[in-house]
Nucleic acid binder design. Sequence first.
DNA 1: AGCACGCCGACT
DNA 2: GTCGGCGTGCTC
Length: 797
Amino acid sequence: MQVAKVIVDVPSRQTNIPFSYLIPDNLSDSVTVGMRVQVPFGRRKITGFVVELSDHSDFDGKLKPIEALIDLTPVINPELMDLAVKMSQTTYSFLISCLQTMLPGGMRTSFAKRITAKSEQVVKENDWLFQGKSSVEINPSTTAESTTKKLLDLNKSDEIVVDYVLKRNSSAIEVLGIKATMTPEQLDKQRGLIRANATSQHKLLNVLSEQNNAKLLQSDLVKSGISASAIKSAIDKGWAKQIKIHQNRNPFMQPVKQTSALKLNVAQQNAVDKVSLSIDERDATRFLLEGVTGSGKTEVYLQSMAHALEQGRTALMLVPEITLTPQIVNRIRSRFGDQVAMLHSAMSNGERFDEWQRINRGKAKVVVGVRSAIFAPIKNLGVIIVDEEHDSSYKQSDNPRYQTREVAKFRADYNHCPVVFGSATPSLESRARAQKGVYQLLSLPKRINDQVLPKVDVVDMRQELKNSGSLLSAPLQEKITEKLSRHEQIILMLNRRGYASFLMCRDCGYVPQCPNCDISLTVHKNSHSLQCHYCGHQEPIPTECPMCHSKRIRNFGYGSEQLEEQVKELFPDARTLRMDVDTTRKKGSHERIIDAFANHEADILLGTQMIAKGLDFPDVTLVGVLNSDSALQFPDFRSSERTFELLTQVAGRAGRADKVGEVVIQTYNPNHYAIKFAKTQDYEGFYQKEMGIRRLGKYPPFYYTIKITGNSKNENTVMTRMVALTSYLKEHLSSKAIVLGPTPKMITRVNNQYYYQIIIKYRFEDQLQSALNRILNDSQKLKDVQLSIDNEPLDFM
DNA sequence: AGCACGCCGACT
DNA sequence: GTCGGCGTGCTC
């Protein structure tokens, strides 16, 4: 008997165990661990991952056979299989979720329900469903309840057959395009029929007649300034027809010039030597590479990776979400050429699938990517680089809540290779480990070419408030004027957390709240609506106060939109660019804004955090942080660390070329240590001070932490359950463990669900994992409260 | 998560 | 009497 143990694609606690299936004879040679299979499960058909092959099963019932193979080669290799199991244990999440997150998005398969009528009569009677066809496909997750009921009836009366068809939503390599249907002569005549000022349509006519036989990509046309509506009207007017183009995807836009290794300074050379030695000796040393912006960390990464390749091994480099710009990728590709594969969230599903496939086939020797790239199926790793290791995007915020740094260590152990964690402002956890000798510390103390650090001014906004109340302090305004007159560029950053603009009645103080959540609604000017950032609720902006009917209901607080308005008022001649979630929502718009600013199409770039990181504009000589301390307002133990990090990062943006940069930090807490150390760019000073505070507060890195969140639509139910959990935990953990709570979350109600949390702080608790698993299992039965566990949460909020 | 079975209220 | 509400439990 040949049996495959399968983890089925049903994310629930009861199905979080392998199910046994018979391997039919025709598949007996092909089924391997790590492949996905199609199996019957109850009445349904679903996908699953083969996790083990065996000659027997412990299940007493009758085994069903595997129906089909989805993959011809394993998609999860043995290393990743081990990792998935370990990860599901440490993150308290389902094994199936871990396996799924390892695959590139778009490779997920799902089943569509196919409804087939048993007779012509049935088709006719149910035109709402069949619309003349004898068989239709239905997506189970988007089917309305009323439809489901009707289908059930039809099924009962034996009028239809329901089965399932596999839907593979990967690699849709088809993109929209158009092709001319008229000859150039005919197109010429069309010119007379459209308005002279319809520039977009004229342009399109030119392109159509010049490239009369070509298949034109819609995205290329839009890029060259032809509007989508012009394309649409071209199709309507019969100039061209819409076609689907099979595109050979290549995520790298242009070819890059080959570059070679740069000369290293003493500290850099030392770092490269240490890492190389560790690669040669195949030991899984963890390095912490600490060096300020401009100290040449990237060159150390590149030469370490080059060394791994020389030894016939491979390299994996991780960068934070927003830092993975074409600039960075090109720098890596210029060194390693076509052996580089890139995995980035801004790529399309299809592009990522292609890159993943190249890696899985062993065609790529270097992988560069964001968080999820840590699961790239690259074999024979020689070195792993985690750049900006403190960055919060390395922790996944939903299940499985893994920390990329920890996954990197697992893979390093498995491959016997070193990991290099690099940062100008390392996380306290990593820096403390370096202190204890768990990580090996490598320092790059000097900036390349002995560039001077920018000059940082701190402006006390409490004084400024008395004077004007403007967002921009007088000293900052002066500096902006000065830089503008010299045609130098400026970056203004607004830390938007908690500073979104809301509506308030000037007469009675009423602030519109979200009906589903405990939070005020945010004003969105461009869509002219009030929106809730937590549940997505939208409503129109009222013209009068619903409470007191006053007309004096106005914006309050500052968003980047308000900032832009104010800047335009104060500096009418300056050209501004805004970069925030609103202006970067569309794919590629992020790059477009960066390029535009780099090309001096604007004098002032303003926006939120995302402009702080990784960008390199040599002509920026002034950076202003308008509300540097808004993070400090948050009651969270990491708020100082975040503030310091952010300010240090932004300061690094100013004056990287020959010009000395200036930084203006506006704050209401000029005496806060995070601000003071940021002013002098003194990471080590900050580290010492912050460690003292963490020790006193029994926070990480002195204690490990776990956050348990519970939610329910009834506030009392969650509260009682969480109180019970707290006493259970106190009973089952040692007296040294600290169990805090339960406390309502800062925003207690979201989407009409009430959220409460418990924090556990501990050092050594061997009973913890089993206690938490028991809690999760029990909560399966009592499903009035939803529980989720976050191991080493980023915040306690 | 689905999907079915099963046990109690308001209706042709 | 039955249709249908959703609580409970299983899926190899």
